[in-house]
């Protein structure tokens, strides 16, 4: 499966640089964020691959690195019983990436969650609202600079 995946991807996308990482029996695929929609659509529809199930979309905040965020997708192929992890780097200065919710509907809420927690904008997302925090809330809590106990008064309490 791993070989097939590598062959098909490098055959289809000649201009995209793929980096394959294998760790703990898991295959991770790293590439530039501009190709994300095309690669995902290909992975979903191509015969023999059929990654039809999007388990999760999340992000990592590296705090001090140049490309500050990494957006991580976990997708699963029910036909081949194979899990793949996709990664794209996103910089803080241009904090956005194309949404994949048109490919997997399941990504819709997961992307909203990543937006709420990290402030990464998902372009062309049908409904990019905050998932958990109130809409008036100004911060993104999972960013490393946000303190664990929060900022006092950021969310109001009812009066006694």
């Amino acid at each position: 499966m791993k070989e097939l995946l590598k062959d098909k991807l490098t055959g289809q996308f000649t201009t995209v640089q793929f980096e394959f990482i294998e760790q703990f029996d898991e295959l991770t695929l790293k590439f530039d964020k501009s190709a994300i929609v095309n690669v995902c659509a290909f992975l979903k529809d191509e015969d023999g691959l059929k990654f039809n199930f999007c388990e999760d979309v999340t992000a990592i905040d590296w705090a001090t690195r140049k490309n500050r965020f990494t957006v991580v997708y976990h997708i699963f192929s029910m036909e081949n019983k194979f899990r793949l992890c996709l990664k794209v780097d996103v910089d803080e200065s241009e904090c956005s990436v194309e949404s994949v919710s048109s490919i997997w509907k399941a990504a819709n809420w997961a992307e909203r969650e990543a937006y709420d927690m990290y402030g990464i904008i998902f372009l062309n997302h049908p409904d990019l609202r905050r998932m958990y925090m109130p809409e008036e809330f100004e911060y993104h809590p999972l960013r490393k600079e946000y303190p664990l106990m929060g900022i006092p008064g950021a969310i109001p309490l009812p009066k006694k």
Binding site: M117, M131, Y132, L148
Partner: peptide
Amino acid sequence: LGYLHRGYEK
């Protein structure tokens, strides 16, 4: 959602 967001990941 969010009425029970307890901040596990943080």
